[in-house]
Design a protein around this nucleic acid. Structure first.
Length: 862
RNA sequence: GCGAGGGUGGCGGAAUUGGUAGACGCGCUGGAUUUAGGAUCCAGUGGGCAACCGUGGGGGUUCGAUUCCCCCUCCUCGCACCA
């Protein structure tokens, strides 16, 4: 027998070619089969696949292959989230075109994915920068515009005066532009918005139905939507008839409101000081606060400051005069941009009141006793009994909170109100590499959408990107020039492009019908495949991408394009890939390859091993997937990723772990080849003849393993424990071949051995598909394993006839016995009490109780 | 500050409903094999000489707690002037 060595380089390309040639992963709608849509978050084509991607796709691939074997019609597509800033920046740097950079990256990354043996239906692949994709996004924009779900409004944005562009919050670093470090300004700008707030309540409510999502993602979504139930209260100005409306969740404390705080952006902020001695001071303050970027304004050490406007308003319940301040901590974006300040019961208001010497009135008295309004430095936030609140004194604050709303409504001083933290989604970007917003402005007819038959509005191919000066599209006269669709006179095109989150909000629908040209979605096919049964991706998308996708799905449903509200039934958020960092005193952080035997290869000094951190280029603790695959083959990488820990936990990349996985594959390789001779023409045991001794044990373990592996994958995604169980079976198979048990080499023994070996191969196949296909062939079968049904187990086979029973005295383990499975409770108890060790512990003591847990233990209480 | 999750050998991690704590792997130790190294195969491996002690610390419920309850502590993640 030729004992060929395990050589992944030979077998992996072979099977990848086979799967592709046989088109095993290409699927169509098949109503006879139950569908299963498995999706991993598609990547941005940044250049190379990194370990985080590898982990994501490997987890998905195991699930996909497992579900295929379970008989589902599995849709498992892949594509590219291809619009975005890096392409544009690379183009500016290299004086090339973003499309060139993007498609080159896609080609390279696709080849990387293909080397990983992933079960994708590549016929469905698309890139979102393809006009055939974004034309439907533009079409949808038009439908949304018609329904009022897309609208234009002005809003405050981070703006870099040097780059002449809007920056997202995360692109502002320490108050400066991430690219040129110029101080970022706040600027009012006309922007396109999607009205996601219309769905705030529905998105929030439906969270509770997302039972297949991780709890923390649900919590994050709920917090992001941020529902507050409270009231709006109108505070009349001292002069004139106008009112300042505030939103509050503590309307019960309205009698304690002693001053008013306005946001700097509040329309009344400047107006109220006009002509007053405070005018100049207020103006300066407002200008200063407005200029400060959001990051600084929301930072922890931001000092709470304010200025008096010189005007007053009246407390609508007490009639008391309340000075109106402009305060830097009041946000225009939340509520009404005005806050009734109740210093006794709000810490910020108390700090503010103490700083500027304002009145403090206690209106909620804690159960512990009265508060001293003159000396208190900590606001009382809890519940209690109402005081200083006129006819409402002595009510509980919780009760009063409801009553006061009725009262306010009756007197027309206020109303119940609900506020959400969620804001409408600003989608305008002053960028080239994005989907153009399909709008034309006409001096006569105003804002017009592009006619549907004129879609897509394609990005101009010839355009020099300079990185300076506003929307790049605005510098292309050919692009801007457009005829008004309504009157035919010259108009100009919208030059902003859409946020790239728009593309990723519906790509999963498009995978169902990527070749459909008559419309955005082919209803029939989408109905068959959607929703996604299992979505897998990084926790970093817990809020934005997932929330936007849920929003879009509702919009599509409202437009009758689809008939479901939630796109992702089950969600798995995989953990990060981490590795220790290495540092040299002289050369700083080191890449893994710069460390040999714990020493820096540049100077030979001992490298300092740092914390285990998320793999990142800046920490230099990155491992290149290509190098690893080259060295060990992809099956080893897949096995390591899956066997080290559960998928939702962070994975620590360890070279020793990789070695261990590689060794294990060598072990199963030998397991097959070393036994090949004896099991070559044997039919696997099928439970027909009776078994005893080692054969029975092996048969039993085989079926126990099948049961546990199936449950670990299906119920909990615990691939690591599933693999551990398979390893146990492999260890047992090795035991089975020991010389002293070779008398078992009877026909039934061989049949059981073959059954066990085949079970190992089949159970491992979703994890390490190449080596298992190869060994399956070595065993004399025709490919492919992925077309086999997932193995079932015999209930009878896992039934033990002898059960170990633990014996405890007072809850402490003292002995163990083995009893027959058919033993009665009484017999077990008697056997336990008769046990020598137990007698030592019970001698001379009164036995108070004997507790029996069937099949597990006996506990004797003395 | 608020919310969520977590703390188990030298290390990564098991223990599904309260019932054998430490599966499986890494590392380490010993043995076999080998000209040698590597690879491979086998065995051992929580601490303690023992009685015993052990799941971050303290208390509780229970015949019995890694698991349930209370208090404390530390770590990770998310959110955060949200009125």
């Amino acid at each position: 027998m030729k004992n060929k060595k395990y050589d992944p380089k030979k077998i992996e390309p072979k099977w990848q070619r086979y799967w592709e040639g046989e088109r095993l992963f290409e699927v169509t709608e098949d109503t006879r089969k139950e569908k299963y849509y498995l999706l991993e978050m598609f990547p941005y084509p940044s250049g190379k696949i990194h370990m985080g991607h590898v982990r994501n796709y490997v987890i998905g691939d195991v699930m996909a292959r497992f579900k295929m074997m379970q008989g589902y019609n599995v849709l498992h597509p892949m594509g590219w989230d291809a619009f975005g800033m890096p392409a544009e920046n690379a183009a500016i740097e290299n004086r090339s075109h973003p499309a060139k950079w993007t498609y080159e990256n896609i080609d390279y990354m696709r080849s990387q994915l293909k080397k990983m043996g992933l079960s994708y239906d590549w016929t469905r692949e698309f890139a979102t920068c393809d006009p055939e994709y974004y034309r439907w996004e533009q079409w949808l924009f038009i439908q949304m515009y018609k329904k009022g779900l897309a609208y234009k409004d002005s809003s405050t944005v981070n703006f870099c005066p040097s780059c002449q562009t809007v920056l997202a919050n995360e692109q502002v670093e320490g108050g400066g532009c991430w690219r040129c470090e110029t101080t970022v300004e706040q600027k009012e700008l006309e922007q396109w918005f999607f009205q996601i707030t219309k769905y705030a309540e529905d998105l929030l409510k439906a969270c509770d139905e997302l039972t297949g999502w991780p709890e923390r993602v649900i919590t994050m979504q709920k917090n992001w939507i941020g529902k507050s139930i409270g009231a709006e209260i109108d505070f009349p100005l001292e002069e004139g008839k106008r009112v300042i409306t505030v939103f509050t969740t503590r309307q019960d404390t309205v009698f304690g409101a002693t001053f008013m705080s306005l946001a700097a952006e509040h329309p009344l902020a400047l107006e109220l000081s006009r002509g007053k001695e405070q005018e100049k001071e207020v103006k300066e303050f407002v200008e200063r606060v407005k200029k400060e970027d959001k990051i600084k304004r929301t930072s922890e050490d931001y000092a709470k400051e304010g200025v008096f406007t010189g005007s007053h308003c009246l407390n609508p319940l007490t009639g008391a005069k309340m000075p109106i301040y402009v305060a830097n901590f009041v946000l225009m974006e939340y509520g009404t941009g005005a806050v009734m300040a109740v210093p006794a019961h709000d810490q910020r208001d108390l700090d503010f009141a103490r700083k500027y010497g304002l009145e403090v009135i206690v209106v909620v008295q804690p159960p512990e006793g009265p508060l001293d309004f003159q000396t208190m430095t900590e606001a009382y936030l809890g519940e209690g009994v109402m005081v200083n609140s006129g006819q409402f004194n002595d009510l509980s604050s919780t009760e009063f909170r409801e009553k006061i709303v009725e009262y306010l409504e009756e007197k027309e001083l206020g109303r119940s109100a609900i506020n959400y933290r969620l804001r409408d989604w600003g989608i305008s970007r002053q960028r080239y590499w994005g989907a153009p917003i399909p709008v034309i402005y006409c001096d006569e007819c105003g804002t017009q959408t592009v006619p549907e038959d004129a879609l897509p509005v394609v990005l101009p191919a010839e355009l020099e990107l300079t990185g300076k000066g506003g929307s790049p599209l605005a510098s292309s006269p050919d692009f801007v020039k457009a005829e008004c669709p309504n009157c035919g006179r010259p108009g100009r095109r919208e030059t902003d492009t859409m946020d790239t989150f728009v593309e990723s909000s519906w790509y999963f629908d498009r995978y169902a019908c990527p070749d459909y040209h008559q419309g955005m979605l082919d209803r029939k096919r989408v109905d068959y495949w959607m929703p996604v049964d299992q979505y897998i991706g990084g926790i970093e998308h817990a809020i934005l991408h997932l929330l936007y996708s849920r929003f879009f799905t509702r919009v599509l449903q409202e437009l009758s394009l689809i008939d479901f509200a939630e796109p992702f039934t089950r969600l798995l958020t995989q953990g990060m890939v981490c590795k220790e960092t290495n540092e040299c005193e002289e050369h700083g952080l080191l890449f893994p390859r710069e460390v040999k035997e714990g020493k820096c290869i540049l100077c030979g000094k001992q490298a300092i091993v740092g914390r285990i951190e998320k793999m990142s280029k800046s920490k230099k603790n990155v491992v290149d997937p290509d190098e690893q695959i080259e060295r060990y083959g992809v099956d080893t990488i897949r096995l390591f990723i899956l066997s080290d820990c559960p998928p939702d936990k962070e994975l620590e990349w360890r070279d020793e772990g990789i070695e261990g996985s590689f060794r294990f594959l060598g072990r199963i390789w030998r397991m097959v080849h070393d036994n090949l001779e004896s099991i070559a023409n044997i039919t696997p045991y099928r439970g027909t003849s009776s078994l005893e001794g080692e054969s029975l044990k092996l048969h039993r373990l085989t079926h126990k393993t099948i049961k546990q592996v199936t449950e670990d994958i299906d119920r909990r995604f615990h691939f690591n424990t599933a693999i551990a169980r398979i390893r146990e079976l492999v260890n047992y198979i090795y035991q089975f071949n020991l010389p002293e048990t070779s008398r078992e080499a009877t026909e039934s023994g061989k049949a059981v051995l073959r059954e066990a070996i085949e079970a190992v191969i089949v159970l491992l196949s979703p994890y390490v598909p190449h080596i298992t296909e190869e060994l399956w062939e070595v065993l004399g079968h025709k490919p492919s394993i992925v077309q086999l049904p997932w193995p079932g187990y015999y209930k009878d086979a896992i039934q033990e006839e002898e059960i170990p029973i633990m014996l405890q005295v007072n809850g402490k383990l003292r002995s163990k016995i083995t009893v027959g499975a058919d033993c009665s409770e009484q017999e077990i108890k008697e056997a336990a009490l008769a046990n020598n060790r137990i007698q030592e512990y019970t001698r001379g003591k009164e036995i108070k109780r004997v507790i029996l847990v069937p099949g597990k233990l006996v506990n004797i209480v003395v």
